[in-house]
Design a protein around this nucleic acid. Sequence first.
DNA 1: GTCTATAAATAGATAGAC
DNA 2: GTCTATCTATTTATAGAC
Lengths: 205, 205
Amino acid sequence: MNSVVGAKPSFKEQMLLAREEAIVVAVNRLLAEKGFDAMTVDEVAAAVGIAKASLYKHFPSKEDLAAAAMVRVMRGARDFLDTIAPDLLPLEKLKAVVRWTIQVQLAGEMPSLPSQNSSLRAALTGSRAYVDALMEISDCLGRWIEAAQASGALNARLPPIVVLYTLYARGCDPVLEFLRAGGQHSDDEIIELVVSTCFDGLNSR
Amino acid sequence: MNSVVGAKPSFKEQMLLAREEAIVVAVNRLLAEKGFDAMTVDEVAAAVGIAKASLYKHFPSKEDLAAAAMVRVMRGARDFLDTIAPDLLPLEKLKAVVRWTIQVQLAGEMPSLPSQNSSLRAALTGSRAYVDALMEISDCLGRWIEAAQASGALNARLPPIVVLYTLYARGCDPVLEFLRAGGQHSDDEIIELVVSTCFDGLNSR
DNA sequence: GTCTATAAATAGATAGAC
DNA sequence: GTCTATCTATTTATAGAC
């Protein structure tokens, strides 16, 4: 009974998890590069170096592959939140999150999913791991947002949900690729420019 | 020789143009609803009410259909720019453009194209009408941006190209659909919230 | 679990009659 | 130009041997 939660995984189970991790990493990269619709299961199999039929032994559908990649990203985000110094001001915590999000995108590791695809939405909302991670993240960010608004660091006239969505939207910001394609700015410059426009806006002060 | 530029179109030619306009309108709506990859040519044919083969008599490929829809949108944007009162302050002109962009999106008339699809990019960059309209728009917005920066209304430390891309990005802002799905805000409220976060940022002043 | 081979469905595009 | 019918390629997914 090594599959019990908390029990030490057997060697075989470790190999299985390592293989599935390799699959999810490949899916993650392909989702970032081409998006869900353009990514094919054949490409995933080729990238991992196994047969397509073997893929389907691990994940029952293309949607589940994408969901697993999203779970990985969400858990990475949640883990990052835990590394943020607790003594930072709430506003600085939020800026750190946005910087991290942009870095993931620039590293080619941010999956891009079509927001309207219903079968994909079903796979995501049906994934306990995904929903849980997303809720943890939203709760944490929500607390920081309210604290920042209470202290006057964030515009208190904006509904917190608007702030939250605006931060989430930095994770799929097309400005990044445009700026990168222009070739006029380094990645660090791009990060600071986007953080600036996000928090300070375009107006001068 | 009624196809000469400026000549009065014959009745037949008017019918042809009207039919193609109906096609492009349907494509525009489907592109806004489902995106390029998820939209099928069969759906377009069904929406217009003609056979798929007939579609291909008007447009040689799916990419050309999407390009025609984009040309329509770009020309609409360019025409809107011309309606903006010349005596407005540059900053107000830019805000008016963002409001218009958001309204188009909320009306379900903003095509969503995958930014990485190369065959689609080729069709767009190969369309004289598209490139011309895009350049006219960028030139106009660029002038307003520089004027707003010169007058101190816009943050002059931001490269104008960053401002331009940030404005363009409002055309595919996922915040809109999130807020709409939440059901807590009217369209007018959503517009003002997004305009506010775009120009004023999230920080308080 | 991994493989080869193949099924089943779908999509973009075309042939040819009218 | 419009239609029906079809082609061709691709894609998700599975069967069955090992």
